[in-house]
Write a protein that binds this DNA or RNA. Structure first.
Lengths: 352, 352
DNA sequence: GTTGCTTTGAGGCACGTGCCTCATTTATGA
DNA sequence: TCATAAATGAGGCACGTGCCTCAAAGCAAC
């Protein structure tokens, strides 16, 4: 493997076909086909013979040929919240890009937008989908029992379902998004080490603590704070519920109540709303601030010095990874899944 | 695009074929074939008619069918230095993994190892390759005129060449690896902000400053230091040349000469050699240390506290990205290239 | 009008697999 | 032993494209 291979190997890839399988297994191509595609009416020991041939020859189905024969195309659907923040806009843009990118591979990804805070409607919509309409669905939705059940039933109907960005507990590693606990830890470590004050309090702002993402980030953040930075005291999470007016009120109040604030951690994926409040606040002492997701706002805030670091996941990578994962799931290739870890990126003023 | 598409769209992807092209353009399939594959002997206005049909129908060649018909497989080659550091071992492992992952797509990647410090032999080996043997080559080699020329000639012979991890100036963005200047900036910012001392010196250790990577990292690092951290003075780069004995000597000497060292930046991709010297050094005051690449050594060093941050690029992602890029280049799909940016990852004790 | 050239058409086979049908063989139970 | 069912084989068509041959048509110069 490490050494240069034989020229014969470099010269071309001659892979065994179903004909070879039939020859080696001593059966007909029809029987090979029955085994390969799991049709019944084949004696167990015949199945064994064919499987042995598959193993011996190292047969791997030629997906191009199979897809061509089946006239197969991959129809994927992204179910996203309607709320139009800057991060989601990027996601939309990258789905459109991915469509042109993947046309030659017969992949088509559509988008369905849905009210984020209505689990019933999300579940209802998912229930309306069948394997007739779509091969795989990437779902970005808060974790609720309804959604969880809808996903389970969707899978039972033969549609691949992939939690997207918002984690779902049931997924068991099979989802696309960052490890939010690790992201919270990263935020905590950077904040702790960037702050030079002997002690002080940390303001923590989220959109809502109902989402699993925020919870996990806060969990990782607190873990680091408690273990490593005893001089710093994180305040209870302030929730904006996506409202600028409310953000203005509650953040302002927290700042007034706590003059010893030396750091700010914005958990929310839309940092603009709490960010603008902070910008107006003008702390007496310089405050270290960290937020999530690269958006026009956070990029500008890094440059201006309002933010000191931004922890982000690349939206293009998220989209393409989801598509690749859905395709792999559709084709029953489990191998790929472990490989598509989404990386946590740290943006600083100097590496934008 | 943002709204749910018509059921008809979801129900299946019926894409125009060359037959449709022939019908719409009012020519035969043979002529369509001549135009599509750039054969000559077609009148200019006939070409125009076909191209108009391609545009009107939004025709995109079905790559699966084309590859099947051509019996095409992708034969790729990774040309890597022989020096067996831990980072390269990971690369090897991921190439092997990628091979099983991509078999069903008719992709095969081999490895050729070569003496890193002999540009002549590298150039000679590259010259021996032709499009008969291989479709694309990912090359990890220091930038020298010989190698540069060999790459140019390789491309002229119809073999895709892709600089891999080690940048080559000529590549013009078409390479796989991180932005090393940005990585150096990241190192500088983290080091500067992690250090709480009022002032001090920074030890900078590289394997060799002859590689473009190291130069670019140092460039970004100095930029940040000069602009933002006037209290810190980076020392001239110490080179280990990959020798533990030499590292021991020169690093030790630098430490003895500069008692005011408050930070260490290890540029080299193999951090183990200088790292072990540092470990033995036992500074009087705690020193902030940053290195590159996740390896068993750096991971352990983060956990033990020897290192405070590791800036890394995911080897699996590098390998898979290179393969996808080579395939796109082979198929003349330029779109993908911009999308395959490799992310700089920051590892801390808390997010391993 | 003839010759010689260029351009176009018609048709077919191949790639590897999926999915049919129909005939034939083999095993099972009465 | 025979009837019936289960298992297997033989063969063919389809998918969309690449690539080939050979014939026919168009076109130019003589």
């Amino acid at each position: 493997m490490d050494e240069k291979s034989e020229p014969a190997d470099l010269l071309g890839i001659l892979r065994p076909t179903t004909k070879d399988l039939a020859r080696v297994a001593g059966v007909s191509r029809a029987t090979v086909d029955r085994v390969l595609n799991g049709r019944d009416g084949v004696r167990p020991d015949t199945v064994k013979k064919v499987n042995a041939a598959i193993r011996d020859l190292g047969f791997v189905r030629n997906l191009s040929a199979a897809n061509l024969a089946k006239g197969k195309s991959y129809r994927f659907l992204f179910v996203l919240p309607r709320s139009g923040d800057q991060f989601l806009e990027e996601i939309h843009r990258h789905i459109a890009e991915a469509n042109t990118l993947y046309t030659s591979e017969m992949i088509r990804a559509n988008v369905h937008q849905i009210e984020e805070h209505d689990p019933h409607r999300i579940a209802g919509y998912l229930s309306s989908l069948s394997s007739q309409d779509v091969d795989g669905v990437a779902i970005m939705a808060p974790e609720t029992p309804q959604v969880r059940d809808a996903i389970t039933r969707l899978r039972e109907r033969g549609v691949c379902a992939l939690p997207f960005i918002s984690n779902q507990a049931l997924s068991g590693g099979n989802w696309v998004g960052i490890d939010n606990r690790a992201a919270g830890c990263t935020a905590g470590t950077l904040l702790g080490r960037f702050i030079h004050a002997a002690q002080g309090k940390i303001l923590v702002v989220a959109e809502s603590m109902q989402s699993r993402d925020s919870l996990e980030r806060r969990l990782g953040f607190d873990e680091v704070m408690n273990n490593q930075f005893h001089n710093l005291t994180p305040l209870p999470t302030i929730e904006t519920y996506g409202s600028a007016e409310r953000a203005q009120r509650v953040v302002r109040a927290a700042i007034d109540r706590n003059p010893e604030i030396v750091g700010v951690y914005i958990l929310a994926s839309e940092a603009r709303i709490p960010g603008e409040v902070l910008e107006a606040a003008r702390f007496v002492e310089p405050v270290v601030a960290i937020a999530h997701e690269r958006t026009p706002f956070t990029s500008a805030a890094l440059t201006s010095g309002l933010l000191d670091a931004v922890i982000t996941q690349d939206p293009g990578h998220l989209v393409r990874s989801a598509i690749r994962r859905l395709r792999a799931m559709t084709d029953n290739l489990t191998t790929l899944n472990s490989q598509e870890r989404i990386r946590i990126e740290v943006l600083l003023q100097t590496n934008l």
